[in-house]
Design a protein around this nucleic acid. Sequence first.
DNA 1: TGCTACATAGTAATCATTCCTAAACAGGAA
DNA 2: TTCCTGTTTAGGAATGATTACTATGTAGCA
Lengths: 166, 166
Amino acid sequence: MNLSLNDIRQKFRDCGLKSTPQRASIYQALVNSTAHPTAEDLFAQVSPTYPMLSLNTVYYTLTVLGAAGLVHEVNIGHDRARYDANLSPHHHVICQGCQDIIDVMDSRLDSLAPPTGLPKDFDITSYQVAFRGYCGACRQSQKSIATSPSGQHPVSSYRRIVWARV
Amino acid sequence: MNLSLNDIRQKFRDCGLKSTPQRASIYQALVNSTAHPTAEDLFAQVSPTYPMLSLNTVYYTLTVLGAAGLVHEVNIGHDRARYDANLSPHHHVICQGCQDIIDVMDSRLDSLAPPTGLPKDFDITSYQVAFRGYCGACRQSQKSIATSPSGQHPVSSYRRIVWARV
DNA sequence: TGCTACATAGTAATCATTCCTAAACAGGAA
DNA sequence: TTCCTGTTTAGGAATGATTACTATGTAGCA
């Protein structure tokens, strides 16, 4: 996207939000990213400019921006929250290896019929398609694990078994 | 579904899993539920029968069953993991009020075209549609908040602002 | 310029989940 | 049937993301 700080100040004003340097920087970092960063990612990105910045503030800012509708939380798992300032309708492709998220804007996905068999009084407000799979790099490393000479399945390391999320 | 403990023992054997009473009970509780319970829910459900059961065991069991492909994790947010033993292809409707999840089996959703604009070497293995909205009960309570005489927006309580997940 | 409510930062608390360890047990071998 | 071995279980401790609390700072309005 690439909004200037001035654009952002204006946007905040339009939404009735106070504009502070920290808040603007956090939002700018998010708007200018397509990587769906975590709170920690944003913190790391903005920290050099605002060394006193608290991770707490990042969380608070994301909450406020979320309530204002400027930011969405992206669900790819229960582990940690990732954020997105892309407000145009879109969907996601998630690599199950590196957990990278790629935006998908495919108009064919924008008009799915509401599902059948729901309780009558259920009110659908939005939907999203999450595609899962493996990016090129992760397919490579998968293959090398599958054919590794040891044949040792990585499951042995206690708990960290990864399975296909649904 | 309603599998007997014997069916389950057989299923475990087929998958090369040891069958223990705890494991079978946890799996049975999950298979017989459509509520997509959390680990804690399952723990609460099985605990009366096995008072010594540890929540730890529930997590370990879910991990093992997941690796065996008998169980899937359902993502509706980053907060806590919910589980599903329904292996037939299906999608979900999530109430943003009570966080209830309803299974949707609508064959029209089972053959979406792969999205355009992906890197060539990305390998899509599955996808899922998540519909969001509000169930009848939650629509009612929403309405009563919106028209409440105080007009107080619930945002005031510090951090717990809930916004539409994407 | 001064006031006031909201924002920030620091620290502490919370809570789901994972890790570690010793004891118990399932399932195959003798 | 009994024994052995590796897996499973339970308990307690640790981790890590997120939230809560609180004092101080500051944006934006009068």
